[in-house]
Design a protein around this nucleic acid. Structure first.
Lengths: 136, 136
DNA sequence: ACCGCTTTGGTACTTTAGTATGACCCAATA
DNA sequence: TATTGGGTCATACTAAAGTACCAAAGCGGT
């Protein structure tokens, strides 16, 4: 908000400065009208681009943040979350076990717990739900 | 590209028109300098915003477009694609069959074909690959 | 009418996935 | 010290998923 005020303040200042400048140069005839007009045009063209860029940047936080609170809320443990990530990567229980140096049985336990906590019937559904909850 | 040319053509036209207008009004003294300057400023401010918005839209396809060419390239048929969407929604073969009014056997066939075409070993991996290819 | 391709569906089989249950270890803690 | 929670692993089971192969029906194009 403070930023916006600052920007618009500078904008008004720029207008006033240009008023004075144009009045002075045009009445004295030092500089041709074309140049004055061009300077004014260019200035506001750039200001327009700048303002627009700022406002657009605020509107698009396109990379979605992970909701860590939601993870805690669902009581998903660190290990389980780790397994969840590997599931969403498309790995099998065996493969997950190999990468984490655990037996397939352990992975199955974690997966089962995850399905309950995420209220899913299948691992595919778990991934879908996890994504909709922004925890993945 | 044609659009860009059109836009810049109109921009140049606007500048020239403003040159003439400012020359006329300022020399005859019909209108005050402030108004002329304001009009010029506002015009280019708006043009700046417009141009910037266009260029940014091209740069940020943040809602990722579905690559239909890729789908054709992989020779994924309409039915198979339909099944793929349901898989990513986390449905089982049985459930997909029910929603599409097909037997589970048929879904299995489609899934098997999909796995080959997507070069995946599991349905979870298929979803992952499909997403990375922007076909889902 | 025939061809090529998709769609559909089936059988029989193997492989993963998932459930249920129990056990052991370990660290934090009441 | 006894309890609690997380992590690990196993067995035994059921349920899905996936493979391989086949076959019939439908449909647009030549």
């Amino acid at each position: 908000m403070k930023k916006t005020i600052l920007v618009f303040g500078l904008l008004i200042l720029a207008i006033l400065l240009l008023f004075q400048l144009s009045k002075y140069t045009l009445t004295t005839g030092d500089v041709s009208t074309e140049i004055v007009v061009s300077v004014i045009a260019l200035t506001f063209f750039i200001i327009g681009i700048y303002i627009n860029k700022k406002s657009l940047h605020k509107k698009t936080p396109d990379s979605v943040e992970i909701d860590k609170n939601k993870i805690k809320e669902l009581e998903i443990t660190a290990r389980e979350y780790e397994v969840l990530q590997h599931i969403s990567a498309g790995l099998s229980n065996k493969e997950i076990g190999d990468t984490l140096f655990l037996s397939e049985s352990t992975i199955k336990t974690h997966v089962s717990n995850l399905l309950v906590k995420l209220n899913a019937k299948r691992r595919t559904q778990a991934v879908q739900i996890a994504k909709s909850l922004n925890i993945i």
